[in-house]
């Protein structure tokens, strides 16, 4: 029995190690929402700083749905870049949600300047 258990456990542990060594620092967080938020915060910090490394960081996120969630959240954060970000989505659900950004070209227009005299 112990030998049989070990036969199963050793490859499983190896695979688990491979899984957690994906290079994505948030991947080990077990709670889903915390993990997704961790990924988003890392990538959006790079994105907002204009660091082109945000795309490599995004590619290191293991799941296509999670990558698309980051893309959608970035598109909402910066609708002017929404069409470019949405053009890379990978899943049908995200493509449909992206229409709320891409299908609305006025969102890409810059906000109005404040009225004269306003602080």
């Amino acid at each position: 029995m112990p030998a049989r258990f070990a036969r199963c456990l050793i490859p499983s542990m190896a695979l688990l190690l491979a899984c957690s060594n994906s290079g994505e620092p948030c991947a080990d967080i077990r709670d889903e929402v915390a993990r997704e938020n961790c990924q988003f915060e890392r990538i959006s910090a790079l994105f907002e700083a204009g660091d082109p490394g945000w795309e490599a960081a995004l590619q290191a996120v293991p799941s296509p749905s999670s990558r698309d969630l980051v893309r959608l959240r970035l598109a909402i954060l910066d609708p002017q870049k929404g069409p470019a970000i949405c053009s890379a989505v990978e899943t049908d659900d995200a493509r449909a949600r992206c229409q709320q950004v891409v299908g609305r070209p006025h969102l890409a227009s810059p906000p109005r300047p404040p009225p004269k005299g306003a602080e």
């Binding site: 695979l15 994906s22 929402v33 997704e36 293991p62 969630l69 659900d93």
Partner: peptide, 20 residues
């Protein structure tokens, strides 16, 4: 074991699916 690990690697995605 492999199926369970595949699930573990992709992680629980219920919140993502709900959001989409």
């Amino acid at each position: 074991a492999t199926a369970l690990l595949a699930l573990a690697c992709s992680g629980d995605q219920q919140a993502v699916q709900r959001a989409m």
